[in-house]
């Protein structure tokens, strides 16, 4: 197999420097290096390389629409995993509800005292702000 170095062996240094730009031009991408792009417009070898790379790009893009058949049973496995995750999530939220109900009594009992505490703290804070302001 010939390496890339060998492919471009007969080309000028400018051709070698344009290798990345050639692929970008073939893929119709923006931000191509200006110096390299200018060289390509003047160089028949590089233009031919753009054409060759364009064929490769065309094949790659066409692969976007070619599906690979998944192995039998793999879809079912994914659906089962999601089912298990859903059950797990339901169990977790049910557990939370049960816990909330259990803790609820204590929460309600302490809420009044808590609220009173907050009000005391807030009024103190207000006083403090008034003093400094």
């Amino acid at each position: 197999m010939r390496g890339l170095a060998e492919i471009v062996r007969l080309r000028t240094g400018e051709c070698r420097e344009a290798v990345d730009a050639i692929a970008q031009i073939a893929a119709e991408e923006p931000d191509v290096d200006e110096k390299a792009a200018a060289h390509v417009t003047q160089c028949l070898r590089c233009q031919a390389e753009v054409a060759a790379y364009r064929r490769i790009v065309r094949h790659l893009r066409a692969m976007r629409h070619e599906g690979i058949s998944p192995p039998v049973g793999s879809l079912a496995a994914v659906l089962a995993v999601l089912e298990a995750a859903a059950v797990e999530q339901n169990v977790a939220s049910t557990t939370w509800v049960v816990r909330a109900a259990y803790v609820g009594g204590i929460t309600v009992a302490t809420a009044a005292a808590g609220a009173a505490g907050v009000m005391v703290w807030m009024s103190r804070r207000r006083l403090g702000l008034a003093d400094t302001g």
Partner: peptide, 20 residues
């Protein structure tokens, strides 16, 4: 892209489709 081009050198020619 360079590596891919390198791997496909034998199939997609070396530019003008001419031999070296």
């Amino acid at each position: 892209r360079r590596r891919l081009r390198e791997l496909l050198a034998a199939d997609f020619g070396d530019g003008m489709g001419d031999s070296e």
